[in-house]
Design a protein around this nucleic acid. Sequence first.
RNA 1: GCCGCGGUGGUGUAAUGGUAGCCACGAGAGAUUUAAAAUCUCUUGUUCGAAAGGACGUGUGGGUUCGAGUCCCACCCGCGGCACCA
Length: 818
Amino acid sequence: MIKYNPKKIEQKWQAKWANSGVFNAKTGSKKKKYYLLVEFPYPSGDGLHVGHCRSFTAFDIIARKKRMQGFNVLYPMGWDAFGLPTENYAIKKGVHPSVVTKKNTDNFRRQMKSLGLSFDWSREINTTDPKYYKWTQWIFIQLFKEGLAYKAKININWCPSCKIGLANEEVVAGKCERCGTAVEKREKEQWVIKITQYADRLIKDLDLVDYLEKIKIQQKEWIGQSFGVQVKFLAERVEDFIEVFTTRIDTIFSGTFLILAPGHNFIDKHKNKIENIGEILKYREDAKNVSDMDRANEDKDVTGVQLKGITVKNPATGEEMPVWTSDFVLEQYGTGAVFADAHDKRDFKMAKKYGIPLRTSIKPDNETLAQKTKNLEECYEGDGTLYNSSQFDGLKSVEARQKIALWLRAKGLAENKISYKLRDWIFSRQHYWGEPIPMIFCEKCARLPGGQGWQPVPERDLPIELPNVKKYKPTNTGESPLSVISKWVNTKCPKCKGPAKRETDTMPNWAGSNWYFLRYTDPKNNRSLSDEKALKYWMNVDWYNGGMEHTTLHLLYSRFVYKFLWDIKAIPKTIGPEPYQKRTSHGMILGEGGIKMSKSKGNVVNPDSVVKQYGADTLRIYEMFVGPFDQTIPWDAKGVVGVRRFIEKIYKLSFSKIAPVKSDENLKKLLHKTIKKVTEDIELMKFNTSISALMQFVNGWHALEAGLNKKDLSDFLKILSPFAPHLSEELWQTVKIKGLCCSQKWPKFNEELIEKKRVLLIVQINGKLRDKIEVRVGISQKEAEKLILKSEKINNLVNNVKIKKIVFVPDKLINIVT
RNA sequence: GCCGCGGUGGUGUAAUGGUAGCCACGAGAGAUUUAAAAUCUCUUGUUCGAAAGGACGUGUGGGUUCGAGUCCCACCCGCGGCACCA
């Protein structure tokens, strides 16, 4: 036996795996397919994070086990390589982003290979490869053709530091998700994608898939579906009406005023009828300058201005109501207008401040609260019993909502409506390192009656490649850096062949990841995004793992884009409306002491150094052993040492404690128990307890004089191999069975060996542990009772006490109740 | 504020309503060694006790049950998500 040398062993087996092609998935194979997917990383200059290793290793374990169980496994990897950090780094160093990307992906690939991850490298993809983004652009054109991509002048979230427009999802608490700078509003022409058209299906179809419940909940909440009523408030003095969306139509009788969002177009439409229009427009301007963060601040005072000269009629009471404008009413949600009453905190606050009359119509069940509500001392927002509501008095809120809606509908003043928080997806970015948006603007065509200025690039001209230029710094004006490259910008109109200009904005970094899982099924196809047969064979993704942070971004976007492609039959109908059958999520790995790993804190653990010091098998097992897969967990350098000890122990035992003929009886039993536990736990992602079971087995082996025969050792190596693949291959040579360990058949456990003959029966008195006795399996209650009464200890305790009853759990426990 | 998840030894954690603390780290003692590292053996929830053994113990308070870390109710704390959404 030579000393355990992971460096030598691991490189040797990595080379053998690569040469043998054992991890390559075969499209069309007769075996049952299994498509395992982990989110492809953004290849940053920092290299692989130990967090990547966690999810990649976990799925590698599943992939290896599934292969051994006879599945044709697709476990692919690629690079989501467009994006800002690469561009920024390239600008700083004066190198082209493609050079930086090449360097980073090479490094990531090397690191992944050094971990022994069983990816099918023949299917590697890269979103920055023109052969790949040809199809990203193709998808954009299809969205445009179907009317789901449109250009609009809108207020966008502008990050003054990144010099880029952000999608709503990329703004966190009013700050840029990436750099933390407060986001400004800017009005810009942007490409926008109508994801809202799919809002209901994105919710409904969650019923078809097996996602972690919290993922479903988060997506549903983000989409924010609410069922309500859209009510018409007829305006007096002007011939018009204002529509209001509400989920609380039961409170309509208490509505005493109406509030518009500052940007509401009713104001623009009736400029000359609003007596204080100057004041109103000034308020609108001021509101624009209040950041989202300040406006959302709870402590902030409400502000507002009344539209003088304008009133509307309450559709329920017929009363005249004043109209106000206030910045707490959002232009983008519902109709941008609300009716206000004493049953909403903000309305309540505003009415109190400006002395607007208030009325209540909902009585809470609690009497004191009811009094306070009635006296306008407190604002009650919940459901209750109606009063002040004419024929609806005495109804409960739930019923009243139905009846009032029906009544108003009959009068033609209301209709049922579903509202969503989800907004259309802003798809333009003002940067160089992204997919060019394949659109051309022709002024001549735009001027034609009913003319369409924007033309998609003809599909035969795809891909529109990024021009290879020296200058690609973002501009302060918000123009894309591509806009200054006149040679590239000026082109011909695909329709009239006259002079025209290319779109200079690029796509967001979500564009390439929207559909990458489809490309893996046929990564080199030049005629379509993937061959129909390949899609039919491999799709859907059976199991997809990724970060919780992508729940309302990538995961939602890609579901949407998939549904769209499915609708236009770019994907065979037979596959179904959802791309991913199952979705799980890994927990973060924090630095030691439980703080987030960051360069500035200097607590980043580099997988390379762990591999160098302890070996890949140690790193793999450590990351799986440290705690439950879905839990956030701090790194512990000491724990790594413990795992290395475990590995060395296996290595030693495999040479020193081999039985020539028969394995030790008890050890063999323990082995089969372990096979059962590991087989079941991997499926449940309980990697930590699988490893604990493997450790228990090894400890049992270690404690014995002699141990396993080669046949049983081979079974042990098989179940160890998904966790420590290199070590298993190395030791596989000692059992002298042909082939690679990773290509063996997964062992079956022998139920007979696991079954116990004798068990420890727990003896309790009133639920408290008093004794344990060893009995044969299957003894009856009577026999057990007899046995325990023989015990002096129990006898003493039970003597002279009246026994009320005896609870008996076969082969487990007997409880005497006195 | 709303939604979700969690709270167990010195630490990471384990426990189909049935022995709380498996496995690992750390710590202590011993063996080996000139010595140290490594390795091996034993101990290790708290507490009373010389021991046998007992009492207490899974964030807090209540409840259901023969029996609760696990189920129910209320609360406290931590983490994550959303947040003027009408």
